[in-house]
Design a protein around this nucleic acid. Structure first.
Lengths: 208, 208
DNA sequence: CACACAACATACAGTTTGTATGTAAATGGG
DNA sequence: CCCATTTACATACAAACTGTATGTTGTGTG
């Protein structure tokens, strides 16, 4: 039996090969760094040759970009899934940040998205990817909180970027073995600190 | 005339060559990325051969580490110089963050310290470098603020790391062309938000 | 002064990336 | 249905780079 060996359309071939390449590359980029992963290794894992790679992608960076974009979308999906719109603004933000930290625990994600991504694609490109996927819900959550008067009115882009940066660093620290509770407590404190008036019971988390 | 051509001691030779290599590498690493800078180019700029490089440094990474360490120390020195201990805790923190953002405007510093550094040396190594130079004053400032009751008591390591991450991202955004005022305002808001009670007149400092 | 060693310079081997070329399969018009 | 063209690959090649091994010159030392 030959699995789908008959006459495959060109579009199917392309789709399948691209998917194979991206899948193999994703696995390797999660295990090792971008620099430590060679194209011969990738194509071997994908079961094709380097010719196929360079036919479908301009270069190694382009393949990496495709992988990163997909991975960022996956993270964003997990986060969006976990923070329903029904929650009040502050709780939605905290739920979202918890979901983000949980999603970033998948092995290799932090290095790929937070370390190699900016280094290989540049921070501008990473910002674009982030803004088109993950950061959008964060920014919308912040805008909603501001509208609900539960957050100080601040430049939205800057606030989004800096909170996202804090989330990112927290994810890195937690993967490096730091206390997730500590980082969560500080993140919550940062969020709550942005409330114009102190919330009824904004008891600071106990320092470890 | 031969500049110091006579009999140079071995220690002098080593010192001079290492300095030449680090200087040339620093210039190039500030202009281009780590990946785009080859060792042939570095040694040519330094006026030596690759043999000298690999005699004094284990590999390209080790040279990069030396450059990064020096650059991080320079930044830390500029920051420490600009935030005298006489200021009250909050003002010292803000002065320090301003100084940090100013120091990071030196061309190429953000890429080298915030992008390539973590990617090439790993975030663990970068944390070690940061903690031994720049982050120390930040952490001390935070501890002082907590002691002065002008800041919520939070896990110090986590708070230091997350604020540093926000500073870093602000530096990157500003270099990318974002509004320095916006980012400064958000940073100040984040710092002020950590005060347990709203200060009497926490009027945001006029953005420069 | 001679021997040992440090500080290089040169030569080499192995990999990797991107490109150029070649081949088989698919698409589309007549 | 057939043939020309294009697409999807595979193979071969050239260039560059990194790290190492080897050779040479200068320095310290008994």
């Amino acid at each position: 039996m030959q699995i789908g060996s008959g006459r495959r359309s060109n579009r199917d071939r392309t789709e399948a090969t691209r998917a194979d390449l991206i899948r193999a590359a994703r696995t390797l980029f999660r295990e090792k760094s971008y620099a430590d992963t060679g194209t011969p290794e990738i194509v071997a894992a994908a079961g094709v040759t380097r010719g196929a790679l360079y036919h479908h992608f301009a270069d190694k960076q382009a393949l990496f970009a495709a992988v990163v974009e997909q991975e960022a979308a996956m993270v964003a999906a997990e986060v969006d899934h976990a923070s329903p719109v029904s929650l009040p603004a502050r709780e939605a933000l905290i739920a979202g940040s918890d979901a983000y930290l949980a999603a970033m625990r998948a092995p290799g994600r932090t290095r790929m998205l937070l370390i190699d991504g900016p280094a290989v694609l540049g921070r501008a490109a990473m910002d674009e990817i982030d803004n088109s996927h993950g950061n959008r819900s964060l920014r919308e959550g912040l805008v909603a909180a501001m509208r609900a008067q539960s957050m100080a009115r601040l430049p939205v882009e800057a606030l989004t970027a800096l909170l996202a940066a804090a989330f990112d660093r927290a994810a890195l620290a937690i993967e490096a073995g730091a206390s997730a509770e500590d980082y969560r407590a500080v993140l919550v404190a940062l969020i709550d600190g942005l409330s114009p008036a102190p919330l009824p019971s904004t008891r600071p988390a106990p320092s470890r």
